[in-house]
Amino acid sequence: MTLEITGLKVSLGGRDILRGVDLHLEKGRVHGLAGESGSGKTMTGLAVLGLLPHGARATGRIDLGGRDLLTLPPRELNKVRGGQVAMVFQDPATSLHPMLSVGRQLTEHMRHHLGLGRAEARARAVELLGKVRIPGAEEAYGRFPHQFSGGMRQRIAIAIALACSPRVLIADEPTTALDVTVQAGVLRLLRGLCDELGLAVLLVTHDLGVMSAIADEVSVMKDGLVVETGPRGQVLREPAHAYTRSLLDALPGEPGGPAEPGGKA
């Protein structure tokens, strides 16, 4: 078990946002986390990295290699962030700093966490850009985010997340802001990296089509609770919970069946 979340509760301003979430992520597996907006799936992802909004209180346990991330002192938590648990955000147009070069954003945390020199970090950054299939990696290194398309930016964001060889990757709606035509490519890339690097991936999405494309396990959340969890085929084909069934029924065109990746309307 790479990452184990048990009984995670989060309250914000007197409201319970998470009411006892249990999730288990394993090496080399993609765990999909589905649910409608407001069900708490994004909060679950943020809680792992201690990035909850100001004033939020979290209890329970988030275990990574025997340590509880919720009680880690800030300095230690900062080593885990980016170093062992990395995150890819929904919209690469806003999650990359528009005034810092791609190279800068790729290397700064490598140099900080891994203590690499400028040249080493640069070499690794170019290698990473190649790995996420950015054409002309050498040239891309010196460019700025606005000079890339949305799909390319999300690939860069993924490269940044992978730079320090984390064990866990949290991808929060990584394809929602992208054109349908490039969604499939980014998802394939995520799946491939998960297999190749033995990453434990938490894929947060409201899109069951995305889920059925690459998830190994699927958990469904509603009102701050996980209502159903299991292997993809089981959850998506024979949903045990009424809420999962209603989510599946809401998919256009294919009643009860999983849609093709990126095939949502």
Binding site: L49, R81, G82, F89, S95, E108, H109, H113, A157
Partner: peptide, 14 residues
Amino acid sequence: GQDYVRAARAKGLP
């Protein structure tokens, strides 16, 4: 409040 600041925190920068 920008996303890229949250992303920078997620990278564990000081």
